[in-house]
Write a protein that binds this DNA or RNA. Structure first.
Lengths: 205, 205
DNA sequence: CATATATGAACGAGCGTTCGTTCATAAAGA
DNA sequence: TCTTTATGAACGAACGCTCGTTCATATATG
């Protein structure tokens, strides 16, 4: 009986979590339609039919993943929020750069799931999430401590913050997810510095 | 006899072009695995078996599309190259912004195909293309006319140019392909101006 | 014992590719 | 010049397989 119990519960994690984890690994590598429920079941160590005890359809698995990761992405402990609440913007531009790197590392699966949604579901499941982002940035600025650097009066602070973080995000996404090593012709640390330099004082001599 | 001939050759465009065009429309909306050869055949107005007179496999259709679009993307007549050769960098930052918008409009299918490749083929078919890009930017800077604005001596000109154009690209990709209208809380024209302002003189007061 | 979780065979549909056939046109041969 | 042969584009049926989902049954748990 103990033997059967061990066989039944692989590694202690509940089946639902194992299904989600397996699905995430596969959706991010083959897309939604390129991933079969058999692949997911096999990877999760559950039977094919058991999947339907937890999720009504394959698409429901996908949507659950997006929701789960969105929640984690907006969690206050995530790297970007930490960088914003520990140092004032725009003093912390380099810090934001490294936080963006950490975020892309940590959420690379979520980012790829977003691309899957953009293509295979015409961005149906994710466009609301992006709309929430600007509010998130504005709120983080409010909660940010006062600092030495001042933002020029003709610049929208939330806009500037979005500009900086998106720039870093996109750099690290290219390097990591698009697999383009050194696409700026320099190492990460140098690129972080270049971007910060440009954002602080501009390109003009 | 004439009747039969007409029946055999639909609409004048060669079958190959119709297959590519149909495939592009479908791959960008459902992904590679989500698109069947039957879908492509139906949309192109050819028989299912006829596809294999032109392409050995479904993947070969996909790769042909990427190659075709890549060639068009790097064509000297495309909006971004035009903006760079008509006005000096960094005088033309706003111009680059509008060129980026035009480019995203014109190549939205290509951008989506790239996402398909990143996810479903682990960026296998596109990462070389990105490596080429830096060279493209450096060459465009060389060919660019001399202007009034001068780049600060501690800033890599090609790096700055990439930073500007990627920033604008990503803005317009979000707006158009991710379907997030007004994600900076302002109209396109205002966003183009804000970005140019920040890139020229920086955020600091 | 009742309930919750899990299984695996089967259903009906769809998939990428192959293959034999047809047909219009071009080329070769008499 | 006319007839025969060859060619390549096009077709649609079929092959062998995979797919998402259902459902009757088995097993585990409290």
């Amino acid at each position: 009986m103990a033997k059967t119990a061990v066989k039944r519960k692989k590694s202690g994690a509940p089946s639902l979590d194992r299904i989600l984890s397996a699905a995430s690994a596969l959706f991010t590598r083959k897309g939604f339609n390129g991933t079969s429920t058999r692949d997911i079941a096999g990877r999760a160590g559950v039977s094919l039919g058991n999947i339907y005890n937890y999720f009504g359809t394959k698409e429901e698995i996908f949507v659950s993943l997006l929701e789960k990761r969105e929640k984690e992405y907006f969690d206050p402990g995530q790297p970007l929020i930490r960088a914003l609440t520990s140092t004032a913007f725009p003093d912390n531009i380099e810090g934001l750069g490294f936080a963006a790197r950490e975020t892309v590392e940590k959420f690379s699966d979520y980012i790829l799931l977003i691309y899957v949604d953009v293509v295979e579901f015409e961005a149906r499941h994710v466009n609301k999430m992006f709309a929430r982002m600007r509010q998130g940035y504005a709120a983080a600025l409010k909660a940010s401590p006062a600092g030495r650097g001042r933002i020029a009066s003709d610049i929208d602070p939330a806009g500037a913050l979005m500009m900086v973080t998106w720039n870093y995000f996109n750099y690290f996404i290219m390097e990591k997810l698009f697999k383009v090593k050194g696409h700026y012709g320099m190492a990460d640390e140098q690129a972080v510095k270049l971007f910060a330099r440009v954002f602080k004082r501009g390109i003009l001599a």
